[in-house]
Each structure stands twice: as structure tokens, then as C-alpha cells.
């Protein structure tokens, strides 16, 4: 684990702690709901990740060993222990999107952002990752931005039109 990246100095403000408490209470502090709790918490943290101090806080609050929290975070693709960005861009890299031609989509996004996969832009605004099929094969090639699905991205213009909504 990259400590400098995961340390997240001073992220756990009093307000965030209250929000996290709320989430944990919403799930009755039920350890079986850990996956959902971590997803929800990640959703309210800037840059969409679980900083180490937050993981430690959840561990303490829910009385779950930190190692178990990290077992879950590192296992699931939708959970991240490194800061991502305001907008998480996920390009489907699975077979239907390949077959229907996702190279224009990949190239256009790389050009627009100037980054490779698993990287964020220097301003922290965009993060790019390739993901397995998210069930939008009927409108492939497809991508997701913060969970919202966009499809039929076969031309540069169609990609730019979507991207413009997230400037």
C-alpha cells in the first residue's frame, strides 16, 4: 500500500465523521452491511476513495478489525484506497464493447484527458479506469461517468458531447 497516497491528512473532519456516523447508523452498524456502508461512505468523500484514517475510523466505530476492512476494500473493484477524482470515468473493456469498436472511445478520452488508465488529471478532476462489462452491451461501446451510463460512443463527436457535460 502506498502510504503517502492513502494517509489522507486531515480528511476526517468533524463534519465528515458525523456523516459517516449517520451512514453507519442507517445500516444499524451491522457488520454484514460493510460492503454497502463502505460504498456509501466512499460516495461522500471527495475524490471517491476510502482514506486510511476513514478506514480506521470505520473499523473503530463498527468494531471490525482494520485488516478486515482492507480485505474488503482491496477485493472489490468498486472500492478504492487511492484518491480518484471528482469524476470517475470508466470505459468498458469487455468483449461486446471491443467487438462493436471501442478504440475511438478510448483514444478520444485519452486525448481529451491526457492520462492513462488508473490515473487522474493533475487538477484532480478526472480519473480514468477500464472496467469489465457493466451490462450496457446493447448500447455498446459504453462508458460510465460517476455511475451514469453513456452508450453508442462510436465517434469522436459523440464522446466529446458526453464529456462536455462534465467540464
Amino acid at each position: 500500500m502506498n502510504r503517502t497516497k492513502t494517509e489522507g491528512f486531515g480528511i476526517l473532519t468533524r463534519e465528515l465523521a458525523q456523516e459517516i456516523d449517520k451512514t453507519i447508523n442507517l445500516y444499524q452498524s451491522n457488520s454484514t452491511k460493510l460492503v454497502g456502508i463502505l460504498l456509501d461512505i466512499q460516495g461522500i468523500i471527495p475524490k471517491q476513495y476510502i482514506p486510511r484514517e476513514v478506514a480506521a475510523y470505520v473499523s473503530e466505530k463498527m468494531n471490525i478489525p482494520l485488516s478486515k476492512i482492507y480485505d474488503v476494500i482491496s477485493f472489490y473493484a468498486a472500492l478504492s484506497d487511492v484518491p480518484r477524482a471528482d469524476y470517475v470515468i470508466q470505459l468498458c473493456d469487455s468483449v461486446v464493447c471491443k467487438v462493436t469498436g471501442n478504440t475511438t472511445l478510448r483514444d478520444t478520452i485519452s486525448q481529451l484527458l491526457g492520462i492513462k488508465e488508473q490515473e487522474s488529471t493533475p487538477d484532480g478532476k478526472y480519473w480514468l479506469e477500464y472496467t469489465p462489462c457493466f451490462g450496457a452491451c446493447d448500447i455498446s461501446p459504453a462508458m460510465r461517468i460517476n455511475g451514469k451510463v453513456f452508450g453508442h460512443l462510436t465517434s469522436q463527436d459523440s464522446v466529446k458531447a458526453v464529456f462536455d457535460q462534465y467540464r
Partner: peptide, 25 residues
């Protein structure tokens, strides 16, 4: 209602159960 977190293997019955129990899949 429970949420997955991006793992194909969790579609397998016993793995899905591990996931609902709050563990890695």
C-alpha cells in the same frame, strides 16, 4: 436490498453469501 461492489465471482451462490455477510468474495 444489498449491493455488490464490482466482482463477477460474487454471482456464484456461496460467494454472493460471503459478500452479503460483509466479507470479500
Amino acid at each position: 436490498l444489498y449491493s455488490g461492489a464490482g466482482a463477477y465471482v460474487c454471482g456464484e451462490g456461496s460467494t454472493l453469501i460471503e459478500s452479503i455477510e460483509g466479507k470479500s468474495g
